[in-house]
Design a protein around this nucleic acid. Structure first.
Lengths: 331, 331
DNA sequence: ACCCTTCATGTAACCGGTTACATGAGCCTC
DNA sequence: GAGGCTCATGTAACCGGTTACATGAAGGGT
């Protein structure tokens, strides 16, 4: 037997559908007697309201669409956790869609959200600004995270990679390091690019000697790059890796070469993955959950009619551990 | 201006809504000429179909509801990743809802899914079987993961904790260990309970001496328990912790006491968190993403009309590393 | 007794799609 | 040239709710 509808309830309670609707939504002008009859019918039929139909007539779904690219473990779960916390607290559900590819695929993924959600959170580091604007359903409020640009059209949130990278360089210089190596991330990744650029300008500003090695955010690339550097006989006393994974790889290369950390070489990463704490790696803490939470907060503001076109920069925090400074507090 | 509807498109293309609908859905009986007119109108108006309305008339949403309890990082992202992979490949979106509490809260969370999704994946280790059955919207296909029971009513998926624990004990015994300590997890947790029971029966079967210490799945509890054991002067040569976190705590206690791993004490955990690989901890690998993927596969089967009431046990895999066996391959 | 208000309830339109059925044009056949 | 067929297209009901407006009974004031 198909699920009961509001008309079945009405029939059973011997009232009209309008009355059932009013009773269920707690409107005032329903007599106590009728309310009871309706409640009984609902229980007897096991009636559960059809949220889809409801949102069609209300023109409000109570859901927020989240479109993310392929993300590795920690980052994905943290950002979704932050969103969920804020969203569920205000009665919103999250409709998740992973945007694997760009172009037409992206357009479809975004369009699939129309009529299912009240607003969108989009994270698309791999899409061009124009491409993204064209793919977004018009008239659907959207907050953009770590996206290449389009900052004027939609409210957006970005991680302040520059401030993070600068903090690391300042720290290493303050420790008296004279020659700093930067293990950079992939060139298509906007975060990697910003960290690389900020590293260069901060090092230049300090007038400290530096060099940039190419990596791909994977542990192995960090190990390989540093091992090669040591083999070449290059002198250096500090490493700033564009993420923690590569920093860990670098650490292994240093150990293998018999170099002491931090005495001979100080090292710092970026992200503060859980592993970083365990091995005492200095890093830049990114409060990912907070990014997600803020995105929802701002979307909610838009949904309540407050227009918003500002960009929000999230300043990450330097965490000093024993890989760069032995005086760092034990954790 | 509000979003364009199919009627706006019909007006602009000078055809009826039925024709527009047919053209958009690629039905055959639409002339080439009309098809073009419709496509033009769609482009000019920036029309995007309203998925909510569509699913109302089709009685099919193309979405799957996922209701999870509060999960820590790795587990959450992995299981969602597995589901997403399988779901998006078949054109389904995931509607996410975290079920923070039990009872009435749980019922509301589940009911909110009615009319929004075609089926449900529910993970509710903290709910009683009856409570869950009562809260599920009737007539909504559901697959249950790691849930206390109700195995007859709905298709379900469980992790084979018994097989995992047995494999660890077999391994430790094969290494010649004579006295094994089990660091157990919290008593309300079904996974912890199953591992504990399986440990006991496997150890008994081998006739090996053993003891169970209480823990709570947190690193600290493992360290405390083992430190206390050593202080008491108890003799032992192996530890099986109910999860990796506690195993890591135990490792720290062993190091602090100057005991060598694995020479003096072999140790193994459960879960295979990323950290385990880094520190060479033997453990039981749980393929979390696979659990999620299988849940979607089975739900899809139900949605295609294949009824299903079976329970599926997922056998985890023993991963031997240097914390129990120095001959283990380096990773 | 009459009119006006208040209040619970019912009727029906609407949200934005899909689709069964009706319609009518064009062509073929005998 | 009448009847029958195919085929593109239109009309309107329907999915399951919400809600503006209509209705009619009860109560109050004079």
């Amino acid at each position: 037997m198909p699920d009961a509808t509001i008309r079945d309830v009405a029939k059973r309670a011997q009232v009209s559908v309008a009355t059932v609707s009013r009773a269920l939504n707690g409107l005032e002008n329903v007599s106590e007697h009728t309310r009871t009859k309706v409640a009984d019918a609902v229980r007897e039929l096991g009636y559960v309201p059809h949220a889809g139909a409801r949102s069609l007539s209300l023109a409000r779904t109570g859901a927020i669409g989240v479109v993310l690219p392929d993300l590795h473990g920690e980052f994905f779960s943290e950002i979704v956790r932050g969103m969920d916390r804020e969203a569920s607290q205000h009665g919103y559900l999250l409709l998740l869609s992973n945007m694997h590819a760009g172009g037409e695929q992206a357009r479809l993924a975004l369009h699939a959200m129309r009529g299912r959600v009240d607003g969108l959170i989009v994270m698309a580091p791999h899409l061009g600004a124009a491409e993204l604007t064209a793919a977004l359903p018009p008239a659907l409020p959207a907050v953009l995270i770590n996206t290449r640009s389009d900052r004027e059209q939609h409210p957006s949130i970005h991680l302040d990679n520059r401030a993070g990278a600068r903090a690391v360089v300042d720290h290493l210089v303050a420790l008296g390091r004279k020659r700093i190596i930067h293990l950079a991330g992939p060139a298509q990744n906007i975060d990697a690019l910003e960290r690389r650029a900020a590293f260069r300008s901060a090092a230049d500003a300090h007038g400290v000697s530096h060099e940039i090695l190419e990596g791909d955010f994977e542990e192995q690339s960090g190990e390989t790059a540093i091992a090669a550097l040591i083999a070449k006989g290059t002198e250096f006393d500090a490493i700033f890796a564009a993420n923690d994974n590569m920093a860990i790889g670098a650490l292994q290369a240093l150990r293998a070469a018999g170099l002491r950390v931090p005495e001979d070489v100080a090292i710092a990463g970026f992200d503060d993955i859980p592993l970083a704490r365990h091995i005492g790696l200095s890093t830049v803490r990114v409060r990912i959950a907070e990014l997600g939470e803020r995105a929802i907060v701002r979307l909610r503001a838009m949904l309540s009619g407050r227009p918003d076109h500002s960009d929000e920069l999230h300043a990450p925090e330097l965490v000093v551990r024993s890989s760069s400074d032995l005086r760092a507090p034990r954790t």
